[in-house]
């Protein structure tokens, strides 16, 4: 299996504080990697580095065999897509959010594709005109996740996206992530504190005090 993302001796420092310390990790294509560890240990920072939202202080971070700095940042973030724990929805309606990935690619929204995606996560097409303020927590998270996959990335970085959701919502998201991974070849890297998700992990790493333990 080819390595899609590789980190070698990666450090991330803010001022004098070393947030990530000598991280070495190889993520094979189509892997399902679960990242866990105590709060403040550096998990989110690790994912944000991988997403190109922040830059490492030193070390080597490669995507598809090339240093990530060699890619155009916008293009890269469409390949390695980061999903936030508590997403902000844009505009006024659900449609405003799902049109956004099309808008930034200067394309008209593909209604059928959007409705199919909504349907897959158990949301009705009528939700498109719904005001974002009227959505439940689980609906918000699902709408936010759809934004990330309307154009499939190579890697989906998920930062505790199921935290605070009920069992039904979690189950929907798990089923969907498995589908993306298995059927659509999307590599997923997911941060979680959830015991069941840790139990079900295919490949588990732990980030503690800025260091990675496999």
């Amino acid at each position: 299996m080819t390595t899609l993302m590789r980190l070698q001796h990666v450090n991330y420092q803010v001022g004098d504080k070393l947030i990530l310390n000598d991280i070495n990790l190889a993520v094979p294509a189509q892997a399902q990697l679960t990242v866990t560890g105590p709060s403040g240990g550096g998990k989110s920072t690790l994912l944000r580095l991988m997403a190109g939202m922040i830059s490492k202080t030193s070390g080597d971070l490669q995507f598809d065999g090339q240093p990530i700095e060699s890619y155009e940042p916008t293009w890269y973030r469409r390949q390695v897509s980061y999903c936030f724990q508590q997403p902000t929805l844009f505009g006024k309606t659900v449609a405003d959010n799902l049109a956004f990935p099309y808008q930034i690619r200067k394309l008209p929204m593909d209604q059928q594709h959007v409705e199919a995606a909504l349907d897959y996560v158990g949301l009705s097409a009528s939700l498109l005109t719904e005001a974002i303020d009227d959505l439940s927590g689980g609906e918000r998270q699902r709408v936010a996740l759809i934004r990330n996959i309307l154009f499939l990335p190579k890697i989906l970085l998920l930062d505790e996206v199921t935290a605070g959701l009920d069992a039904d919502n979690k189950a929907i998201i798990h089923r969907w992530l498995t589908h993306l991974n298995r059927d659509r070849q999307v590599t997923t890297i997911m941060i979680t504190h959830d015991a069941e998700e840790i139990q079900a992990a295919q490949q588990l790493v732990q980030v503690m005090n800025g260091q990675l333990e496999v």
């Binding site: 939202m53 916008t74 469409r78 897509s81 999903c83 936030f84 990935p101 154009f151």
Partner: peptide
């Protein structure tokens, strides 16, 4: 800030 970060993360210019 959060909204801007999310747009960037989605691959917005």
């Amino acid at each position: 800030r959060q909204g801007v970060l999310e747009r960037l993360a989605l691959g917005a210019g």
